[in-house]
């Protein structure tokens, strides 16, 4: 009986091109994508961290890698991913505490997350990378 209750038919709309994702939804999927990307690039980041600390030679090769323009852009993107994940995560912690769960505050807090994470990315990125 319980099995049947769970398998009851529910209306579904998964026609992706017709779904317009609201801002909190965009924030949510970027939260997931940023987390996955940061996970996938962990070996690269750990390798960078290791070579930055190990010896004068590895430090020099670390500088060489980080001075590359393409690497700088990738790292700037990763800093944005980190900052977005950080800010959106704090928003989720507040939602867990039932703060800002009505639609208006949820949209407003999403805008704040995008604004603050991009500002932090520019401040930290420019200071660290250039």
């Amino acid at each position: 009986m319980a099995e049947m209750a769970i398998k009851k038919k529910r209306p579904k709309n998964l026609d992706l091109p017709t779904i317009r994702l609201p801002l909190p939804g965009i924030l949510s999927i970027i939260h997931r994508i940023s987390g996955a990307a940061l996970f996938l690039l962990l070996p690269f980041l750990l390798w960078l961290f290791e070579s930055s600390l190990t010896s004068a030679q590895t430090f020099a090769s670390f500088k060489g890698v980080v001075d590359n323009a393409l690497v700088k852009i990738i790292l700037l993107g990763l800093i944005w991913f980190y900052m977005h994940h950080f800010c959106a995560g704090i928003r989720y912690l507040l939602l867990d505490l039932h703060k800002g769960i009505d639609l208006k505050s949820a949209v407003l807090s999403s805008k704040i997350v995008f604004g603050v994470s991009i500002a932090l990315t520019l401040i930290v990125g420019v200071k660290v990378l250039w």
Binding site: E50, L53, T54
Partner: peptide, 16 residues
């Protein structure tokens, strides 16, 4: 891989 990364991170931090 995550357990491996943990070992790697510890090695980096305590070799410095």
């Amino acid at each position: 891989v995550l357990v491996g990364y943990a070992g790697w991170a510890i090695r980096i931090l305590w070799r410095t």
